[in-house]
């Protein structure tokens, strides 16, 4: 099962140099996170030590070693968002979703709450992104509303 998907990724890249990052990006796209067994499969195929893959995966913030929630909520913490109150929004969303301290995914696996340094949409700060849809000019009240809409959708 994994082999088939991994082979498909490998076919895209086998000719190029320096494809560790691209392979990991595709792996995450396919599996949702960096799977240990998939890394080992690539490591054996390409004769690159698994440690190189994990070295890269832990260096870049884009890669996740744990499965993530069904809905990805990304709060921007850029400078413009920060001075316009992104921290209060994040705290509100953490409270609304009841994400446990030290975790970023809800217990039921519905939501993952994460922060990002800047999405470059500073002119409409503060910004929250849910599943790639961008919301600008967010306030704590609005953020509660946005999450409620997604909660309804994922249950219904």
């Amino acid at each position: 099962m994994i082999e088939k998907k991994c082979q498909k990724i490998l076919n895209t890249y086998h000719t190029e140099n320096g494809s560790v990052i691209s392979i990991l990006q595709d792996m995450q796209e396919v599996f949702g996170y960096i799977r240990e067994d998939a890394v080992e499969w690539f490591s054996a195929k390409l004769n690159i030590p698994a440690s190189s893959f994990f070295g890269v995966a832990t260096f870049y913030s884009q890669f996740y070693l744990k499965p993530r929630g069904k809905n990805i909520v990304t709060a921007c913490c850029g400078t413009a968002c920060h001075v316009k109150g992104s921290e209060a929004i994040i705290n509100r969303m953490r409270a609304d979703l009841a994400v446990a301290v030290g975790e970023d995914t809800t217990a039921d696996g519905q939501f993952t709450l994460e922060t990002v340094a800047c999405v470059g949409a500073c002119s409409i700060a503060p910004v929250v992104i849910v599943n790639k849809k961008i919301f600008g000019g967010v306030t704590p009240e609005k953020s509660s509303g946005i999450l409620k809409d997604y909660e309804k959708n994922s249950k219904g």
């Binding site: 850029g78 400078t79 413009a80 920060h82 340094a117 800047c118 470059g120």
Partner: peptide
């Protein structure tokens, strides 16, 4: 790789 928070010229 426009990483500066607060910058979006390149984008």
């Amino acid at each position: 790789d426009e990483g500066d928070p607060g910058a979006f010229m390149d984008r």
